[in-house]
Every structure is written in C-alpha cells, then in structure tokens.
Design a protein around this nucleic acid. Structure first.
Length: 581
RNA sequence: GGUCCAGUAGCUCAGCUGGAUAGAGUGUCGCCCUCCGAAGGCGAAGGCCAUAGGUUCGAAUCCUAUCUGGACCGCCA
C-alpha cells in the first residue's frame, strides 16, 4: 500500500472529472503531476503541483486550476483540507483515519508493508565483490560487498527478480603469482628456507594453504620445474582462496546465487563468440591507438592491436581486446562475461565496482550496449574508499595480512550488523570514514545504535505490558482500536511510516540503498521524540495503567515502528536488536 | 591532455526522477534534568548550496565554462 500513489490517483481522477466537465481542456498529459510530502509540515500532509504543471498546456493560471481541483477533492472524506498556496501548489490535509489506516496496514502486512511491484519481476543481475581470488577480502571489498548485497535485497523488495553474482578473476597472470606464492609456502612446509621476492604474495594466509598442499601431494613437487606443478597449484590455490572468500562473505551473511569463473570463458569459444557478435556489427578492427595525452608512458610505442570500436557506443577512445602478442586483454573476457549475462536473459545489469575501476565504466557500458543492441541497461555503481580510524588516528596495519586491513579485522571487532549498517551510512560515491570507536558508541551520533535502540525500546514496551497484565501479542494489537491513536505527536510517526513504501521505490529506482539507512534514522528519531514527550505528557506513554484498550492502541503504533525498522534493517542485512546492553 | 566522482552550516553529511522559508547530527550559546520513562530534553544562533553564465513559471538539483580535491587513463589485473 502506497498512500502517495493512492492520493495521486485520487488527484488524477479529479482532473479527469474536470476534463469531462470542461473545466480543463482535453488532451493533457498528467505524467508530471506529482503528489509528494511537502518539506514543511506546516504546508499540510501532501502537496500536488498539478496547477503549475498543467498551467501552460491548458493555457490557464496555475492557481485557478488548483482552486478547481481543491473544490473537487473536498468531497472525498479522506481529505480534510485543500488549500492553494505559493505559486500554485495545492496542499492537502488528510484525516486521522487515513493515518490510522496506515498503522492497520503495517500490522496486517508486517514486513511486507512497503514491498512494491515496480520491478514487475524483471530479471536483474547484480554483480558485486568479484575480488581476485588471491587473498582474503579487505575493507574496500567489504564496502562493495555490503552495498551490492543491500542493493540486491532492495531490488528484491521492490519486486525485481534478482540474481546475486560474483565474477571470479581466475584466468589472469595474478593467479600464476598466487600459485608461485603458494608453492613457496609449500617448500617452507617442507622445511626449506624461502625468500619472498617482488611479485609474490607474502601474506600469512597462504601458510596453511602451503601446508595443506604438502599434506595432499607430499614431496611430489619438490625440485620440480614450474611446468610440472603450476597448473595444478593454480587450481588448488584458487579453490582455497575462494573458500576463504566465501567464508569472509558468510561472516557478513552474504550468499551469492552464482559464482562465474573467468577461466570458464577460455577454450570454450565464449570469448570468440562475444567478439564475433561485435564483429558482425562492424565494431572490431585492427588499428593503432593514439598515445595518451598529457603524461606519456616512458616506453610507449605505437602497436597494431585488435580494437573494439567502443566510441560508437559512447566511449572516448576505442579499446584493445587483444594484446600485441595476440593474447586477450583483460577486457576481452569481461566482454564475454557480459555477453553471457545478456544471453542469460537479464533485463537489467548492475555492476558494483571499486572506485579504482572508474576508468572502466564507459567501455563496459559501451560493450553491453553493443552486445544487447541497446536493449539491456547496465548501471555501474562505484563505491569510494573507506578510511579507517582508531583512537583518533588513521588505522592501516593488519596483523593478519601484513599490508591491508581485512574484512575479518573489521567484523571481528564490531560485528556484522555494525559493519553492514555503517558501510551504508554514506552514498556509494562519497568516501566513508569508518571509526572503530564511534561505531560502537551509544549515542544519537551513531545511527546504528540509534536505530537499534528504537527497535529495542518497542520490544521493551511490549515486554513490560505483558508484565503489567496487558495483552500485547500480535493478534491483540492487530485488533486494537486505532482511533485512540490521534494525538498530533503520534500521527507524526504514522506519517513517517506512510513514507516507507514511497522511499523503497525511490531507493530502488536510483539503486541507492543508503536511502534506507537514512530513512530508518529519521524514523527512529521521530519515535524517540514521541517517547521523550512521554516524559512530560503522560498521556503519550505507550502503557496507560489500567486502560488496556488505549495501551494496546498505542502499542500498535509502537509495533508498527518496529515492523518497518525490521523491514528496513532486513534490506540492509542487519538484525534488529531485541534489547540494548 | 582526457574521463569519472565530489564541493551544501565551524565540522561530518542528507536533500526524494526541478518545487514553497535548503535539513539532520555534532560543535557553540541559553534553559531544563534529586523522583514518576533522561545511555538526555527544549530553544537559539549559524548558509552567496565552489564560481560565472544559461534553460524554466520555478534550479542545490538540468546544461555550458571555470576553480579546488580525489580516482583512473595502450601490453597489469
């Protein structure tokens, strides 16, 4: 149930009726007619811009249209006030019954309240994390992981058919580096002294992998040339790394629907097929690229390569798909991978990348545009850097990995719920400060705490009611007499709840899950404010001694808040707190 | 040289497919808080929305240019 679209259709009906009467000319488009909450609550509950939007095409004055519309709407018993204001806004006031109806809907639908069908079950693929299988996930990956996962949940909630996917970069030279590094650990496990030169991964996390390799193959690879063991160790090591990464993701409660291996694109004709598809469109040619302007690489020299004419699809320069030695560039399997996604019938694609892949956006969009003939939109969301702070200073060292802070370093310290919520308290394209001390602070400054505290307070009220002998179970609250929830301070909260379905649609349309986090903070703020007013105005307290009916009505409001917080936290992947400790 | 992102209150940041007097937290100042629901509450001050043009009935939001900061820029993934 979305109250805003309900009122909007009420407005549209009225406009149509005005046309039928001749008050408005025929042939107007109502597409731009919006019904929104005004910024200033003094302006009423909802405002429509119909007068201003229609003034020009109707050749009428905005305020005249608004006046006529007001007269039409006044007949509806949900509308208690309709006044023209400003340049031609029509401000509407809704009856308390409407807001009480919102509470009833929340209690009736539970966390389904706010679900939308805007997705129309369209198939959308969200690719995220996709970290190289060469080590544990670090903080940067963590942000992408949380963002992508929340986005996927959000789209699911908004009615899309979502697939969560991870692209394993197991085809490139970095996997050879991994294999050699593991081989060194293998030698180490056999008691040999080894040196980690440049171009190998020195992290401790490979020690157990080397040991396990020894347990598996014994001394079979000792004193053997690389071509004997490399292929096998590659396979063994990437499997081990993916186990590690899966475990890291599991710590955050993230479960992928599909892991797609880059390696599976080689030798199977998939890359060739993808490029042929582009070639058939005349988008592949042999050529030489201009050198990059500005700072020129020292060793730059012109080379003939196989190029993709990405400029035809919005890119700035054409991109090489084959190296001068004839091997594929990294871009080639990426094209093939997205070709595969398009072939699997997705209606929309979303890639979540780290900010360092920003230079990749245009060519990837160009590729998908070319491959799908412009029918499949690709949205690429970049997550900016995370800066870690501890004791007021930048926090950079990791004991575990040696060089970077891992996902585990973070989750072990603050837990998965805090990690996830905090990572979503900034929009994805702004960098984020993660302060280990602040995220655990119990104050209004800390949104995680503040939202959790609101939920815990509701739970606490329900528990105390039960102790006081007032039934507060779900069925009782559902049948409570909601007309007793009529104080302005209480209706403010109900109005906030009414915005939830609309917020879900906005957040889903823009692919911005952080909006959910901010909304929950606002909702929690409104709830806490109501709670605090109970200090002075005892009639606003949720439990009214000796008056079960009123208590139950007020608790129904509290319960509604808890339900929407649960739904929102569910999208963010955070568990609501039953009590604070 | 180019591409992308950011620039909003002292600080950290929101700002809903363009809407009315631009919001929140924090900080500052004032008041309240021995108890009845205070891991606080109420109120005030604080803004040329980086700058200059443009589009529009209307711009923080869209377009153009400029400035500042960050990321990236053929064989690495």
């Amino acid at each position: 149930m979305n109250l805003f679209s309900e009122i909007r259709s009420l407005v549209l009906d009225a406009l149509a009726a005005m046309q039928a009467e001749g008050t408005l000319p025929e042939g107007l488009s109502f597409d731009n007619v919006a019904v929104e909450p005004p910024r200033d609550a003094a302006h009423g509950d909802m405002a429509t811009n119909a007068g201003m939007v229609l003034a020009k095409p109707a050749k009428m004055k905005p305020r005249d249209i608004a006046e006529a519309l007001a007269a039409k709407l006044a007949g509806d018993d949900r509308i208690t006030g309709a006044e023209v204001a400003g340049p031609g806004f029509l401000n509407l006031r809704l009856s308390a019954t409407v807001w009480q109806g919102v509470l009833a809907a929340v209690l009736d639908q539970g966390t389904e309240f706010g679900k939308s069908d805007m997705g129309q079950n369209r198939k959308v693929n969200v690719e995220y994390v996709s970290a190289n299988p060469t080590g544990p996930l670090h903080v940067g990956h963590t942000r992408g992981a949380v963002f992508g996962d929340a986005l996927a949940s959000l789209l699911d909630y908004a009615g899309y058919d979502v697939t969560r996917e991870y692209y394993i970069n197991d085809g490139g030279a970095q996997v050879d580096v991994l294999a050699r590094s593991v081989y060194l650990r293998y030698l180490e496990a056999h008691g040999q002294e080894v040196a980690f030169v440049d171009g190998t991964y020195p992290g401790d996390y490979l020690v157990p992998v080397g040991q396990a390799l020894k347990d598996k193959v014994g001394d079979a690879y000792l004193n053997q040339p690389e071509d004997v063991w490399l292929a096998d160790v590659r396979e063994y090591a990437t499997d081990a790394m993916m186990d590690l990464i899966r475990a890291d993701l599991a710590q955050l409660g993230i479960k992928m629907d599909k892991f797609f291996s880059e390696k599976s694109l080689y030798g199977t004709g998939l890359i060739e097929a993808a490029l042929k598809s582009l070639d058939d469109k005349g988008l592949i040619y042999e050529g030489v690229l201009e050198p990059p302007k500005g700072k020129k690489p020292e060793d730059w020299e012109p080379r003939e390569q196989t190029l993709f004419k990405s400029t035809e699809h919005g890119d700035d320069v054409d991109r090489p798909v084959k190296k001068s030695d004839g091997g594929w560039t990294y871009f080639a399997p990426d094209i093939a991978y997205h070709y595969d996604k398009v072939s699997r019938g997705f209606d929309e694609l979303i890639d979540v990348f780290g900010a360092d892949h920003g230079g990749y956006v245009k060519r990837m969009k160009a590729a998908v545009s070319a491959l799908s003939g412009g029918t499949v939109p690709l949205d690429i969301k970049l997550t900016q850097l995370v800066k870690l702070w501890k004791d007021g200073e930048p926090f950079k060292m990791s004991k575990r990995a040696g060089t970077f802070i891992t996902l585990r370093d973070v989750v072990d310290q603050v837990g998965p719920d805090v990690t996830r919520f905090v990572m979503l308290t900034r929009k994805n394209d702004a960098s984020l400060d993660f302060d280990f001390d602040k995220v655990l602070e119990q104050s209004r400054e800390n949104p995680v705490f503040y939202v959790q505290y609101a939920h815990a307070r509701v739970m606490s009220v329900l528990r105390r009611a039960a102790e006081a002998g007032i039934a507060a179970d779900e069925a009782t609250l559902k049948s409570a007499d909601l007309s007793k929830v009529n104080h302005e301070a209480e209706l403010v909260v109900a109005k906030k709840l009414a915005e939830w379905p609309r917020l879900v649609e906005t957040a889903a349309r823009t692919n911005e899950p952080h909006r959910v986090a901010f909304y929950l903070y606002e909702l929690a703020g409104d709830f806490h404010a109501l709670w605090n007013r109970g200090n002075e105005l005892t009639e606003l307290r949720f439990i009214q001694d000796g008056d079960a009916a009123t208590s139950q009505a007020k608790m129904a409001l509290a319960q509604s808040v808890a339900v929407v917080i649960s739904a929102g936290l569910g999208i963010l992947g955070v568990n609501p707190a039953q009590e604070m400790r």
